[in-house]
């Protein structure tokens, strides 16, 4: 049958759901081994974080899309968590190969890392369902017969950053590694993440209060203390 925007969206959703094991609500054995190899086991903090953010996400999704959609928000979150675990495992495998270490205690106990990774996974899920597609980005379905209408509301990026209380600059850090770690992401989703990346780089990271200003200041102060090379004669 000919490819229509709706069919394309349905295929993307099917692919996303198919790629994520239904048993993936818990960390896989491999991932659990990475956690156990840490100096400080991050498991309990991670589960607690997921519990809290799951409640916040479902509530905010319901507020944005419609009161009957809290359940839908919970379903999106569950898919997001599966993707979060899948990508985290791929990232750690690649880091193990690159650095020849198995103890990622510092990274895995970094709350910002987890929140960024989860936010990216949720953004991918919502974009797949057409709920976070930019107006120029093609299809924008997602409502269907559920009585929820995300097209009428604004769950577009950077909505997710506000929900999980994450700085755009920290979200930016995870995008490239996320795309590298999941080669099954569709072309449309990669394009969507690239648009998010550009929005951060061009606008959001420069808003008042951004951590970027403090980092630039530190970089400048550090740089000024360095020895300046004398010009060649």
């Amino acid at each position: 049958p000919p490819q229509t925007p709706i069919r394309a969206a349905m295929n993307s959703i099917q692919q996303l759901r198919g790629d994520l094991p239904s048993s993936g609500d818990q960390p896989s054995t491999n991932l659990a081994t990475y956690f156990k190899n840490c100096t400080v086991d991050p498991t309990q903090d991670m589960l607690k974080r997921l519990e809290t953010l799951g409640q916040v996400f479902s509530q905010r999704f319901g507020q944005a899309v419609g009161p009957r959609c809290v359940v839908l928000g919970r379903q999106r979150f569950t898919l997001g968590v599966r993707l979060y675990y899948k990508v985290m495992e791929a990232m750690l495998k690649s880091e193990e190969k690159r650095l020849s270490v198995q103890n990622f205690s510092k990274l895995l106990n970094d709350s910002t890392f987890h929140t960024s990774l989860l936010a990216c996974a949720l953004e991918v899920v919502m974009a797949t369902y057409g709920e976070s597609s930019f107006k120029t980005g093609g299809y924008n379905c997602g409502g269907g017969s559920s009585g929820c209408d995300p097209a009428e509301t604004n769950v577009c990026f950077p909505w997710i950053l506000d929900v999980v209380n994450l700085a755009a600059f920290d979200f930016y850090k995870v995008i490239e590694s996320f795309i590298k770690a999941d080669p099954t992401l569709s072309k449309d989703i990669v394009k969507h993440l690239e648009t998010c990346e550009n929005l951060i780089m061009e606008r959001i990271a420069w808003r008042t209060g951004s951590v970027l200003f403090e980092l630039l200041k530190q970089e400048h102060e550090g740089g000024a203390a360095e020895q300046i090379e004398t010009p060649a004669s």
Binding site: R98, L99, F104, L107, D110, T112, K173, E176
Partner: peptide
């Protein structure tokens, strides 16, 4: 299969980006 431009060097992984190396 997509046009994303990967800008990170091989020595830059997620650990470095979160200052955890």
């Amino acid at each position: 299969s997509h046009d994303y431009h990967f800008g990170l060097e091989d020595h830059e992984g997620i650990s470095e980006l979160f200052d955890c190396d």
